[in-house]
Nucleic acid binder design. Structure first.
Lengths: 298, 298
DNA sequence: AGCTTTTCGTAATGTACGATACAGGAAGAA
DNA sequence: TTCTTCCTGTATCGTACATTACGAAAAGCT
């Protein structure tokens, strides 16, 4: 069981290593370096042959280049590139200092405490959620949410109900006919009466997918309702019936799954709705404000 | 000179292809999918053997997975991933072209779409929340939460109630006597009867600090209750009476404040409680599981 | 020019890797 | 139970790949 290799404290980026070796290189090696840095680091992840072709040179020249830069093998070189890439994908701030040959060190997690790591995991989850989210899918869901002609129903499981409720409260501010399906399961059949076939149902279904939630969603789907599913990457069975799926990571160093990315996605949806509604939504909110202060509530 | 092969107009992302195939997959394949998506797309760039090991499975299973997703070979799969990655890396740098020659000192986000920026803001909020959190304060709150001798009460505002409810549900799994103060404000005085002076009250109070929440918290504090406040950095008036304050950033590029960091902090608390309780908490959860399956519920 | 040194590609080699065939075994049906 | 089907890992194979050896060509030096 190989532990994730620790390449010692703070190795320099490959780009930097290349820069430092640059003046003791032969002409073709210089060309290779240039090709690598220009498409950094993609070409380095391909095979030696492909790399060579792009640099209009031969395999051995690539290998000599690699060893001169300081790697024991081409495999080691690729491993280093992947490591780098991984960090860069996870921390948007350190995005390009590799190529810039800047000396800002990459964040090094090893010294941080569990709390900080927990935070990092959450941040990474959010990042990943938005990275893997298809923009088309997102836009399509926003379109459904802003369509005030048809009713909107929201359903959540035991824990995800809180997130469902969150979405419900915000959407209620922004548009008419938003309905949260809540209360004990036994009352759900009644609530089904209010759902017509042109409506949309947003379902939150996360690990420990609840049979009652699944059943309800499937029945709705059969009834012709448009189904939007927000789930973890394991994906509930509902995926099969859903018209749109937004999946988010839930894993954190903890006994329980995290709902943070799910909430993040939910807020992104709300933000998207606000955006799309424009002044129309704004006016609605203002009207609501007035009503609230008038009634002296809160 | 081989042209860069064009795989037709706008092929879907690998992630999406995986999602679409997900429901016709076997358990092992699902696990593979999960591993891939969780570290997206880094494991996919490694060798089949490395990928297999990370997914605790065998090489052939990886290959079956790859073909089921829709790739002719592992090489084709990797090529697709690289293409994707390339686009993702290039888009924020479009204006950045002559990287080395450019004199712009720092890369910024202006090239990315609003969704990505939104995600960045959320991730940054979480990081800041944990960076500025005092470890002592955190530990002290955990101590209060794990103290099962005294009752615990949880209170939230209009929106933060969902987070309060989230905390409530998890803590209920982990310890006895946890009580969520909910329902309309008018019923709160009644619920106050259940609160004794050695209890702890967790209050969520965010911008648009609600008078009723503030009033309730203050009364409790006068009654001798230990007060824990979770709030945004602007801090509610309750700060004055609180024994412990955990503040989190709420700002995002959107019309509304974000509750994500608040939820993150909440989950960190739950994780801390689990940690502190150790096997004791574990046993309690197992007992609960049994009860639940026994009663046939969900 | 002729000799030496450096540079670089061709060709050969060994191996690590992806691919495949197959069988043990679990899960489900009859 | 027994039979069937579907999973999934082990063992094997063939090949594409990184790597090495070698020699031709270029560059540098006297």
């Amino acid at each position: 069981m190989p532990l994730p290799q620790d390449d010692g404290p703070m190795r320099p980026t490959v780009a930097k290593m290349v820069h430092q070796t640059l003046d003791e290189m032969t002409p073709t090696e210089r060309r290779i370096a240039h090709i690598l840095l220009a498409s950094y680091p993609m070409v380095g992840l391909e095979t030696v042959a492909a790399f060579a072709e792009r640099a209009r040179t031969s395999g051995p020249s690539i290998l000599r280049f690699i060893t001169k830069v300081g790697f024991k093998s081409y495999a080691a070189f690729q491993r280093a590139l992947r490591e780098e890439l991984k960090e860069r994908l996870e921390s948007p701030l350190a995005r390009y200092d590799g190529v810039m040959a800047s000396d800002t060190p990459l964040p090094d997690d090893s010294g941080r405490d569990t709390l900080a790591r927990f935070g990092d995991a959450l941040a990474a989850n959010i990042r990943r959620a938005f990275d893997t989210l298809s923009r088309d899918e997102y836009e399509a869901v926003i379109a459904l949410l802003t369509d005030s002609k048809h009713a909107l129903h929201i359903l959540g499981g035991r824990f995800s109900r809180t997130t469902a409720s969150y979405l419900h409260m915000y959407l209620r501010e922004l548009r008419p006919i938003v309905h949260l399906i809540d209360g004990p399961t036994s009352t759900w059949p009644d609530q089904r009466l209010d759902v017509s076939k042109h409506d949309t149902l947003i379902v939150y279904d996360f690990r420990r997918y609840q049979p009652d939630v699944i059943r309800f969603a499937e029945q709705m789907a059969r009834q012709g309702v448009t189904l939007v599913l927000i789930t973890d990457i394991w994906n509930s069975q509902i995926t099969a019936h859903a018209h749109h799926v937004l999946s988010v990571p839930v894993e954190v160093p903890s006994a329980f799954d995290s709902g943070v990315a799910g909430l993040a996605m939910t807020e992104a949806l709300v933000a998207g709705v606000v955006d799309r509604l424009g002044s129309r939504g704004k006016r609605r909110i203002e009207r609501l404000e007035k009503l609230r202060t008038a009634s002296g509530e809160e």
